[in-house]
């Protein structure tokens, strides 16, 4: 199966190269993430006590929306230039290519958000006990968001304005991740054990990892067929 691994690696490399050549798409989610966090204190209240109560949910909502915004581009350019047709005509399994693309996408969106998140935590006066919970929950939660988002992106890639539709399709599936993610941060802040929340986030990730690439592959077939 070395050719299959080879394809996984090549696709991963290709998508990273593409992302670094389109710099604006690369920094978009991060800038959005930072803007939300910096506007909130201005718009609502700069009161530290108040903000530190909001912080766990706020960082998570911002991360969720930033991921959602970046999903639309996952298959778009491949669809437009015909690469997607070539992908679907490969004798190799499609889910593998999808998985590789999502991994590359997550590294530059979800993982980047996770790394920047403590900075936002500080800006929003999140107590320092909450930081490990924030990082861990984002680390387990954002890949799930990317994987689920890939299904929505695959379903809407053939539509001219798919952005809104992705949100509608995918948001209900994002809610559980949001709930357990922000609860994990909350628990960390109050000193309660995190294990339960993290286990649930991990379970959701395992489920998404197993099913989402296959679903996205099938969705791509439908989109290209139309």
């Amino acid at each position: 199966m070395s050719s299959t691994l080879q394809l996984f690696r090549q696709t991963f490399k290709r998508d990273l190269t593409l992302a670094f050549r389109r710099k604006s798409e690369l920094v978009n989610p991060l800038i959005f993430f930072l803007i939300v966090a910096s506007l909130f204190p201005i718009g609502v209240s700069p009161e530290p006590n108040f903000l530190s109560q909001l912080a766990p949910g706020l960082v998570w909502v911002a991360a969720l929306l930033a991921t959602l915004l970046s999903m639309e581009t996952l298959f778009k350019s491949d669809y437009e230039d015909g690469s997607l047709e070539q992908l679907l005509l490969s004798p190799q399994p499609v889910f593998l290519v999808v998985l590789s693309k999502v991994l590359a996408h997550w590294l530059l969106s979800g993982l980047a958000l996770t790394i920047v998140a403590p900075l936002l935590g500080v800006m929003l006066f999140l107590p320092s006990e909450g930081m490990p919970g924030l990082m861990l929950s984002l680390l387990l939660g954002t890949p799930t968001l990317s994987l689920i988002g890939a299904i929505g992106a695959a379903l809407t890639v053939g539509l001219r304005r798919g952005g809104v539709l992705i949100s509608l399709l995918v948001l209900p599936l994002y809610i559980p991740v949001l709930i357990f993610g922000s609860s994990a941060v909350q628990a960390a802040v109050t000193g309660l054990p995190l294990d339960g929340y993290l286990a649930l986030l991990g379970a959701m990730l395992a489920l998404a990892l197993a099913l989402a690439p296959i679903a996205a592959g099938a969705a791509l077939r439908i989109s290209v067929s139309g």
């Binding site: 290709r14 190269t17 593409l18 050549r21 389109r22 230039d81 047709e85 070539q86």
Partner: peptide, 8 residues
Amino acid sequence: QAGVSAML
């Protein structure tokens, strides 16, 4: 569509 990515 030739399947040629413009950025590569």
